[in-house]
Amino acid sequence: MSTPYPTPGGPTVFDPMTLPADDNVNAYTFCVELKGSQWFLQKGKMIAYYGTIDFNGIGHGRLDRLVRTSFHSPLHASDWVVAEGSGKMLLADRAFDVNSYDLEDGNLTIRSGNLLAFQPTLALKQSIVPGFLTLIGTGKFVAASNGPVVFMEPPIRVDPQALVGWADCPSPCHHYDHGYMTGVMGGLRAMTGLGGASGEEHQFEFVGAGTVLLQSSETLMAEQATGAVPQQAGVPGAGGAHSTQGPQSGVPRLPGQLGDLQRRFGL
């Protein structure tokens, strides 16, 4: 084959042979190899692909069985698609750092906006902690972060904005410094996780065995609504009590709901 456009000293040119399989192309782009297999990915994160790959929304009848076994967050199914086929596919998210992680019969809880894609051998579930998702099982997933991710060992207290996720830690909890909860403003700050005099009065605390993932920046990635949980006594986050968390988080969204058209078209 002729190569009419060599760029000596220029950028590396990739083709399907030289693209890595299930690995990073650079710090911001991840390449997934599909061989008749399937991957779940967040809508709109595919930037290019070689080969034949179909993208089907979750709710597509044929995928029902797959969704039943590895997707347990029916209320935000409309944000996810299943890629299926053979070829190589590039994933990226707003020029944030992306990395893949392997889980082996493990569990990892991650901020919903950071998760880009995962193998169906993992099961995705809504976390009891509002705004987080938990992956359980064996397989690979891809997550984005604002700046490279650092891994820390508990016991540790972390800034809420820097937290990406955690694995195995049994006890994620809030930690407040003195006087933080007094007064109306204190309560408001506690609800939103923002504000405060120095901005460091409130942390998340982790103890026990496990790993905590932090991003090296306090700039949060845009929250992805995780969907409302059933309104039931004893379910944290139910009943719209945390409606300050995001524009959509108070609204239950079912796949196929027509009321969602507006958001779907980016209006």
Partner: peptide
């Protein structure tokens, strides 16, 4: 797509 079950791409 119009039903909200589009493939996102």
């Amino acid at each position: 797509t119009l039903l909200g079950e589009g493939g996102g791409e």
